[in-house]
C-alpha cells in the first residue's frame, strides 16, 4: 500500500518518493494531488478514506508525496510550484493514471492533460495569505509586531518560514500569482456537493465519513462513464 515512484530532482537525478497506493492493475487509475502545506494534514484522513472507498468500487488510486513533504528527502527550502508540477507529471506517468483529482492547492500543480476533478480549488494567494496571517497572529500573541507586507517583502528576498515550512523566495513569488489553470477537462467539486463543513478549515485534523462517501461517489460515478 506504501510504494515508491521515481521523481525527477532538480539536479537531474532521480529521487524515490513515497506514495500511498491501492494498485490492483485495474484500468481505472486515479492520481490524487494532495492539498498543500498545513491543509494537507487536515485533509489527509479524508483523502485516504476516499481511496479506500474507490478501491472497493474497483478503482485504483495513488497519493504521491510532493517533493519536500511527508517522507520526502528533498530539501523543501529549494522547491517551488514548478518542481511540484513536474513531479506530478512524472507520477501520473509512472502510475499510468487515467484520471486525476486535485485537492485545494493541489489544483495549482495538476497535470492539465488528464481528465478529472478539482475539489475546492484554491488560489496560491489565498493559501499564502492564510499562512501569513497565522504567523502574524502568533507573533502578536508573543508580543512581536509583524505585518503581512513586511513578511512578504522579507520572504521574496530571503525566504520565509510559514506553518513550519521553509518557503523559498521563488515559492512565495509563485504562490502570489498562481491560479488553477482554466482550460482543462477537470470539473470542479464544490463543498456543497459533499455536504458538511470544509475539513481544511478545522484547527485540528478531523474526519467525516459522509463527506468521504459523497466524494468517492462523485469520482466513482464519473469514472464509470
Amino acid at each position: 500500500m506504501i510504494g515508491t515512484w521515481p521523481c525527477p530532482a532538480a539536479d537531474k537525478t532521480t529521487a524515490q518518493e513515497y506514495a500511498v497506493s491501492f494498485d490492483s492493475s485495474r484500468t481505472k487509475r486515479l492520481l490524487i494531488l494532495p492539498a498543500l502545506f498545513d491543509e494537507a494534514n487536515r485533509l489527509r484522513r479524508l483523502t485516504v478514506e476516499v481511496m479506500r472507498r474507490l478501491d472497493g468500487a474497483g478503482i485504483d488510486s495513488f497519493l504521491p508525496d510532493l517533493p519536500g513533504c511527508n517522507e520526502s528527502l528533498a530539501d523543501f527550502s529549494q522547491l517551488t510550484l514548478a518542481d511540484w508540477a513536474s513531479a506530478m507529471v512524472a507520477a501520473a506517468r509512472h502510475f499510468r493514471a487515467s484520471h486525476v483529482l486535485a485537492i485545494r492547492g493541489g489544483a495549482l500543480v495538476v497535470p492539465q492533460s488528464l481528465p478529472g476533478w478539482r475539489y475546492a480549488p484554491a488560489n496560491g494567494a489565498t493559501i499564502l495569505r492564510q499562512m501569513l496571517r497565522i504567523r502574524m497572529l502568533a507573533a502578536r500573541e508573543a508580543g512581536r509586531e509583524e505585518t503581512q507586507g513586511s513578511l512578504i517583502e522579507q520572504g521574496l528576498v530571503e525566504g520565509l518560514e510559514l506553518a513550519g515550512y521553509r518557503l523559498s523566495p521563488a515559492m512565495i513569488a509563485a504562490l502570489q500569482s498562481a491560479t488553477p489553470p482554466e482550460e482543462t477537462d477537470q470539473s470542479i467539486i464544490g463543498q456543497d456537493m459533499l455536504g458538511g463543513s470544509p475539513l481544511w478549515l478545522r484547527a485540528e485534523p478531523d474526519e467525516d465519513r459522509e463527506q468521504a462517501d459523497a466524494l468517492a461517489a462523485v469520482l466513482a460515478l464519473g469514472m464509470a462513464a
Binding site: R129, Q130, R133, I134, L201, A203
Partner: peptide, 17 residues
C-alpha cells in the same frame, strides 16, 4: 473555545473569500 488564534486566521481569510 473553538475560536483560537489559529482559527481566527481561517475565519478572516474565509470572510475575505
Amino acid at each position: 473555545p473553538e475560536l483560537d488564534s489559529m482559527s481566527v486566521a481561517g475565519l478572516l481569510t474565509e470572510m475575505e473569500d
